[in-house]
Structure formats: structure tokens, C-alpha cells
Design a binder for these strands. Structure first.
Lengths: 172, 172
DNA sequence: GCCACATTCATGCGATTGCATCAAGTTTGA
DNA sequence: TCAAACTTGATGCAATCGCATGAATGTGGC
């Protein structure tokens, strides 16, 4: 019997036409489909718990941590909006507005880019570093309880290694 | 050197206090943290591409597929809102409204539950099955190009197996 | 130098989300 | 039998999302 959550269609054949675009005719294997589902569900579980934990602790949402950490790594030179977008993998408009919120909370400052008048450099402030530092213990606990308590280090490394090419592929 | 996306804080020590709640003092290993990041990023890549592909094909969003597939598996008996919620792992209010949209599109019908006047049974219609069938080729292509093209079947099965306990844990 | 095109970021908009709450129905216990 | 507690699903609301678009700036061909 198929896995309970297998989304494979048993009736896709009738819907397939001889001259569908080639792209639409490729079918993932059962194993690949199972991995996809696991990926989606596991992330949903993880994200939900992270957001809830942060909210309960009266801390900002997950996206703030993500952005602040990237900015902290970037240091005094800051990052452009577009660079944050590439790191975080969220839509540009959302980065723009997230930065608005971070600025309103004094977590970052916008500085004009000396070499490109269109761009701006987003630089983290001490207040921003402090916010990130306060978020980390809560976030860390969620990572540990969601992943660490169920997956040993070897398997965890395996997951990161297997998924690396998936993440690297920006095709589309 | 630490991985570029390692969110581990180098300055969490100063923020740690002797009598923090025990829950907030657990720290994930580097491997577990890397797995967490891989999970989040890979799912973001996957979801974005699925949503875009479906939109380009003028098909409904990912959530519709998920719900319709659960309902199709459930057959004529249908599912309660709460059962769909557990399968899809989204908030109850969102299931309620997703079902509204599915109903408006004639993809499902609501039937009173014979044994519980509060509940209702959501049953997929032929139109709903047709919509899911039209979505599958697009969805399948994304699964293949995002996961299948980068991960072999053995690794895919490994991912599903390793993540299973993560998904199963509904603690919190 | 100048004009067409590309890039960078902001913003209007409609859709969707989660949380809190509510109404209706069911179960429990005395 | 009746009231308190619980369960089920709907809804108001504010926040956030992605897309489409716009304004400002930069780049390259002539």
C-alpha cells in the first residue's frame, strides 16, 4: 500500500496528453515524492514551533532573526536589500518592508551606497545585535527540540549535505 | 571557518544567565543547526517554485492540492475540518477558509455530520478531483526538478526516514 | 552627450495568515 | 434533568505575503 501521504496521482494518466510540454511530463519517483513531503511537513512543524516560541517570549518573528544574523555576519559594510533577499530567499518587496520594520525598531540603519545611488547599505546596530542575542536562546531551544532531540549528528549532517544541491539550484 | 549560514551566536554566552529557564539553555550542535537551516532553505526553494509554477499555469495554490489530495484519499466519507487540519498542519481557521474557497469553486461539498451536529463532512466532488488531476503534472514537474534532479532515490528515502520522527513530534 | 534599456528599491493592492474570540452542539457529573 | 465544561468550526482583525508596477539611478551604444 502506498504511504498515507503519497500525493502521487493514480489517475494522472488520463490527464496526460501526447503533446504536453516536455516539462510537464516528468514524474518524480516514489522516494523523491516521499522526500518532498517530508521536507514540506518537517519545515511546517519547525517553523510553526519557532514562531510560536518566539511569540510566547514576546520576541520578534523568525524573519527578524534571519535578517539580523545575515547583517551581523556582514559587519559594518552592511548588505544591500538585494543581498539580503538572496540570503533569505524571500521576495524583494518583503525584504524592503522587513527592513522598514527593523529600522523602526532601531535594529538597523540605512546608509547611502557610495558607489551606487540606487542602492543603500543596511547596517545592523547595537540594538539589532542585542535583539538577535535575546532571540537566540529561544530559537536554539526550538532547533534542539524539533531536530536535535530526534536526529543524531551524523544524520543531521547527512541531511544538510543531501539538501545542499537542492538549495543551490536557483533555476526558475 | 563556520558555514556561511550558521546562525550560531558567538555572543550568546554574555546573554546567558545562571537561572534562565532550563528550556532556554539547551543548545543544538553544529550539525543539527546545519540540518535546520538546510530544512528551512530547501523548503523555501521548493515552495516558492511550486507556487510560481502553479500560478504560471493558472492553477490554484499549493494548499488546494494538499487539501484535495487528502479529501480524495478520504473518499465518499469525507473529512472533518479538524481532520484536514491535522493532515495539512495548518491552523484551523485557515482550513476553514480554504474549505470556503474550495466550496466556492465547487471542488467540495459540505455535508452535515450524522453523528455530531457541530461537525461537518467535507467531501470532494468530481470537479475537485479534476482540479487536482490538472494540478498534478505541474506539481510533479516541480518535485522532480527541485528534488529529483539533485537527490537519488536512496538519499531521498533517507531524508524521509530521518525526518519522520521530526514530523511525528507534535509536542508544543 | 544623449537616449534606450537594465537595475535597485519602494509601494499599492488583493490574498492569505495566525490569533483571539464567538456561537452552536455535545459530554459530563451531580 | 440541568448546568458547567469541552469541542467544533466560523469570523473579526491586524500583520504579512507575493505580484505588479513605479520612481530613481546607472549602463552602454551611437
Amino acid at each position: 500500500m502506498a504511504k498515507a501521504t503519497d500525493p502521487k496521482s493514480n489517475d494522472d494518466a488520463p490527464t496526460r496528453r501526447a503533446n504536453d510540454a516536455a516539462a510537464a511530463t516528468r514524474r518524480p519517483s516514489d522516494a523523491v515524492t516521499a522526500a518532498w513531503i517530508a521536507l514540506m511537513r518537517a519545515q511546517q512543524v519547525a517553523m510553526r514551533r519557532a514562531e510560536r516560541a518566539l511569540r510566547r517570549a514576546e520576541l520578534p518573528a523568525y524573519g527578524w532573526y534571519d535578517a539580523l544574523w545575515e547583517l551581523e555576519k556582514a559587519g559594518e559594510d552592511g548588505l544591500r536589500i538585494g543581498e539580503i533577499e538572496q540570503q533569505m530567499l524571500v521576495a524583494q518587496s518583503n525584504v524592503s518592508r522587513l527592513v522598514d520594520r527593523l529600522e523602526a525598531a532601531s535594529c538597523i540603519v540605512r546608509r547611502p551606497c557610495p558607489t551606487d545611488g540606487r542602492a543603500q547599505l543596511i547596517v545592523i546596530t547595537d540594538a539589532g545585535r542585542a535583539v538577535r542575542a535575546r532571540m537566540w536562546p529561544i530559537y536554539a531551544e526550538v532547533i534542539q527540540s524539533v531536530v536535535g532531540d530526534h536526529v543524531n549528528d551524523a544524520d543531521a549532517s547527512l541531511i544538510a549535505a543531501i539538501l545542499a544541491p537542492v538549495i543551490a539550484d536557483r533555476g526558475d
